[in-house]
Design a protein around this nucleic acid. Structure first.
Lengths: 232, 232
DNA sequence: TGCCGTGATCTGTGATCACAGTTAGACTGG
DNA sequence: CCAGTCTAACTGTGATCACAGATCACGGCA
């Protein structure tokens, strides 16, 4: 190991396996709500769309099933799980606890990079939602960007990973709805809470950051529940 | 659906897939620390041991990799991840936050069934650790039983699932060590904290339940860290 | 008209094969 | 005795095939 000396900046040639890419693709579909609860997913059809054999898709799906972001029914059919109102309430409570905790940690442990990322993400989403004709899919994406910018500031990879898994479950329910209803975005609740969270984190006020995230999550969840589209 | 009339008590023939069984087996090995960090795992060898082809093992492993309970190195070798001290501290902090939260919820939402389960689990582990020659693997198992009896009392399936994933990561580090060192078990810290947790939950004292679990987790983690076996 | 058998077609699961990349060890040349 | 090379045995990944079970539409019987 004596010679190279020069280019140490060669990144290790990210050899992404097809399975990983398939996973990333499907996970994105779920998180952004383009796959609706109850919707079925055929391995072969998905493989066809992705232009690969079913093997990579199988790996991706088995991961998502492990995360309970997908489920395979006793009748051998893969679909995105239907969520009962009770389950959704449970999920929301857990999200408030964990994401709230992450926001509080972010207020305590952030660095300047984090602040910049959070501020930029907040502004991007604010601009989009104040546009005359907001691009809803883009708003959903920007909302995610903002939240994860906050959580990244907690400097806890494990926490971020857990939250990602939660979003994988919540995405189909929440974002499917948001896509169909510009109303709530226009109302500006999310924008308002996001600003509060940003200011709280900048001020190092962990309790306020936690409360802001909790209010944001609860607001969206109550909106979904009030529309009564959930089973049982 | 008019005719059967007779046996309504036929359980739906739990068709467990080979992949699931392989997953359960490997997950158990990890959680109980029988697979040490850094240890390599060959798909074909594992398939051979389990008496199946490599397909079910592949599914099981890809799930565990998704959970970061296993990892596949850039050189194509699956192994139990090595954990740095920093990562272990992060994991411990997250565990304290989440499992503490679950214990607090358990104190608030438990029912009598839960109390019975918790009391029974606590006693079983106390008896084992007070034996002349404690069966360490069994003690590890009973410790897990107790903790999950507590978390089940929170009545939040999602929370329990998250904690399970955390134990999958912590198992190899913590239980490998515990298996080799009866000292800490004999010292009785865990037993002491468990009793406190049980009493707190029975009394509906959420703060005390949370503190007890936190102390239990922190005690074990500090013990591991003090032995300095972790990298970096 | 209403119901039930039936077969074609689809499902996920599992096994097997092919392949490229890695590793370890014997071997060779200095 | 050590550095280098080459080979043989392994690794996970991906594709393909085989199969049992589920689904659904068609058609005939009541």
């Amino acid at each position: 190991m004596n010679l190279p000396s020069a280019l140490n900046l060669v990144e290790p040639l990210d050899r992404q396996t097809l399975g990983e890419r398939a996973y990333a693709r499907l996970a994105d579909l779920l998180m952004s709500g383009r796959l609706a609860p109850g919707e079925k997913l055929s391995l072969r059809a998905a493989a066809d769309v992705l232009g690969v054999s079913i093997m990579p898709v199988r790996e991706a799906v088995s991961r998502l099933v492990a995360d309970k972001a997908l489920e395979v029914t006793p009748n051998r059919a893969v679909r995105v799980p239907l969520m009962s109102a009770a389950q959704f309430r449970d999920l929301t409570k857990v999200r408030i606890a964990i994401e709230g905790h992450a926001a509080a940690q972010a207020a305590l442990h952030h660095d300047s990079n984090n602040l910049m990322g959070i501020a930029r993400a907040e502004e991007a989403m604010r601009l989009e939602s104040e546009a005359d004709v907001p691009d809803l899919p883009r708003a959903v994406e920007l909302n995610k960007t903002f939240h994860f910018a906050v959580y990244a500031a907690a400097h806890s990879p494990i926490l971020v990973e857990i939250i990602r898994a939660l979003w994988l479950k919540a995405g189909p329910v929440i974002n499917l709805d948001l896509r169909a209803n510009p109303d709530r975005l226009a109302k500006g609740d999310a924008i308002h809470f996001h600003a509060e969270v940003r200011k709280a984190i900048e001020a190092g006020n962990s309790a306020a950051a936690q409360a802001g995230i909790a209010a944001d999550i609860k607001g969206a969840a109550d909106f979904i529940l009030s529309r009564g589209g959930l089973a049982e």
